[in-house]
Design a protein around this nucleic acid. Structure first.
Lengths: 152, 152
DNA sequence: TATAATAAAGTCAGAGAAAGTCAAAGGTGA
DNA sequence: TCACCTTTGACTTTCTCTGACTTTATTATA
């Protein structure tokens, strides 16, 4: 039998479908619609609409607060990027980051201005305050995170 | 949805747009136009038209008092960027980085894909391996470094 | 010319509105 | 049975709105 979380998940997915990839919800409103506690909405979002599943979530608290869920596009570059990202190790040197980036340029899947930003973000100057033994790990995190966001 | 503060924000922004970068308002008059207490105007100004967002505010009390809001000039992106970069502290929270970035979008001086990359580079997910006490410093380094590279 | 009245804008703390967190309790399937 | 979901609710954080009180500038009056 379908759990409430599954029902809410499908409800949100239908909304996203109807609105071409992005939907804005009111947490409390949705919770009262489904007769559950508001935090269950957070649970559904955390488990079903996270970035591993190809969604991107933003929110705002306070009066007029809301939660916005958007789905990443699912055309070719998505699969390719995902493949590359998943194949990257947990640590990347500046040199090998540059190689990855140049490669994306060669393959025409990123623009020149993307390249500038990617390189700037992961060079040693950006990471000068990070202890050396951690640098390659942080560099990998940043690079992967940026690539992930490029495909949204 | 859009709260009164958002509506007032847009109203003022439209005025600034119409008058090429500077507008003079009467606090009480505006408040009565929007049917709110005068201090709400201060709230909107404090949260939406501060210098982090590229605005400059002056005012005068007493008879004939008024508030003048001016937008920093973006005619010369180089100067504008330099100004913002130099005004940034050595440590920047994720929230405040987002505000800077949103402002660049508002003022049309970065593209949407730049925004995505900037945000991705400096969010806490990218910096999850950096010890918390260092995070805001690293974030500032990355953001400044990326912005610097954008104007070269 | 002092002084009082009036006309602004500023400050700040508290109430209200919404989302976030987290750990404990409750189910479920292999 | 036991590990792994789900569900719940108390507590926290963030954002917005309000109103009483303060400060400053101008104008009218003695």
């Amino acid at each position: 039998m379908a759990r409430l979380s599954d029902i809410i998940e499908n409800f949100i997915k239908d909304m996203i479908e109807d609105t071409e990839g992005e939907v804005e919800i009111q947490r409390n409103e949705l919770a009262s619609y489904f007769n559950c506690v508001p935090s269950q909405i957070n649970y559904v979002i955390a488990t079903r609409f996270n970035s591993e599943r190809g969604y991107f979530v933003e929110s705002k608290r306070g009066g007029g607060g809301h939660i916005t869920i958007s789905r990443m596009s699912t055309d070719k570059p998505y699969d390719y990027f995902m493949h590359i990202i998943l194949s990257m190790g947990d640590e990347i040197s500046q040199h090998s980051a540059d190689i990855y980036i140049e490669n994306f340029i060669d393959l025409n899947i990123i623009s020149d201005s993307d390249k500038k930003l990617l390189k700037a973000a992961v060079n040693d100057n950006s990471l000068k305050s990070v202890p050396v033994f951690l640098r390659d790990r942080v560099r990998a995190d940043i690079l992967k995170n940026m690539l992930m966001k490029m495909i949204i």
